[in-house]
Amino acid sequence: MDAQSRFWAAVTGLSVEGPVEHRRLVGPTPGHTIWVNAVDRPHTVKNRLHLDVDAAHRDDVVALGATLLAPCEKTGYAWSVMADPEGNEFCVFERGRKVPAYRLHGIGVDCADADALAAWWGRVLGTRVVYDWGWCSLEGVAADDRMTIDFNVVPEPRTVPNRVHWDLTGDVDALLAAGATRLWDMPDWTVLADPEGNEFCVFPE
């Protein structure tokens, strides 16, 4: 947990706070927060959700402990696919000298129906869907105006609980009426699932 927290703090440009069991990476506002929680299951299949980050060069991320899985030169995309020390996939966009201090800029979502899932989340979050080169994206959904959520169709089905998810504030009953599924209740938040089964946490407004 400690090593994983320090790795992601260095990759994203955030600072580490909190006890080892429930580390959080914090930035200039509460919206710039990533929680790093211990779970009792290892990474066994490709993650349905992953983070997209900026870096001056991917070698800088390798030096922090990442593994290069697919370089951009071979995939033909603008990013390289990497894995963190626990095997969680993420994408690195090389920016050279233009790399910002806060380097998380997106969340990628693998799904069966990108159009439908992006439209659902667009309604829930109150933002429009942007279509570009076969991708469906939501913009302006987080504290940083560069942040996007990008939906991509994949052939493989969802088989295990997600290791990455996002939290939001909202009305649970309204989300259930919109098509979410209640999974379980915690003292301070409720865990729901979107129409494709992806878990997310809802905190009261």
Rank of each mutant, 00 (worst) to 15 (best):
E89R: 14
A118P: 08
S15L: 09
A66Q: 01
S137R: 14
A118C: 12
H50R: 13
L125E: 00
V45T: 15
L117W: 04
T181V: 15
H22C: 06
L64T: 04
H50I: 09
P100A: 03
E89N: 11
R58G: 09
W121N: 04
M186C: 11
G65N: 12
R158Q: 11
A66G: 10
F203W: 11
L51W: 03
D110L: 07
G106K: 04
A143I: 11
H32M: 13
T75A: 02
E86N: 11
V26D: 00
A66E: 00
A55I: 06
A178M: 08
D167T: 07
D185P: 00
E139K: 10
P161T: 07
H32R: 14
M147H: 11
E73H: 15
P155H: 13
A119T: 13
A178L: 10
T33S: 03
Q4D: 08
A174W: 01
A3N: 10
L183C: 08
E73Y: 08
R182L: 15
R182S: 13
V92T: 05
G18K: 06
Q4F: 04
L69H: 05
A174R: 14
P195L: 13
E205Q: 12
V202P: 00
H43F: 06
H50A: 12
L168I: 13
G179P: 02
G96E: 01
E139M: 09
V53Y: 01
V45Q: 01
E205Y: 05
I107A: 05
V129D: 01
D59Y: 05
D115P: 04
T29F: 04
D54T: 12
M147D: 09
H57M: 09
G122Y: 05
F200K: 02
G31H: 09
T33W: 00
R163T: 05
A177S: 10
T75S: 12
D171Y: 04
A177F: 02
R103I: 13
P161V: 06
P195K: 12
T127Y: 07
W120Y: 12
V153T: 14
V191E: 02
G27I: 14
C91M: 04
H50Y: 14
H50W: 14
V141M: 07
C201G: 03
T148N: 09
V124I: 11
P42Y: 07
E86Q: 12
Y131E: 14
D54Q: 13
D59N: 11
P30Y: 06
T29K: 13
N88A: 10
G134N: 07
L104F: 01
V99E: 07
F90I: 11
L14W: 03
V92N: 01
R182K: 10
A3R: 12
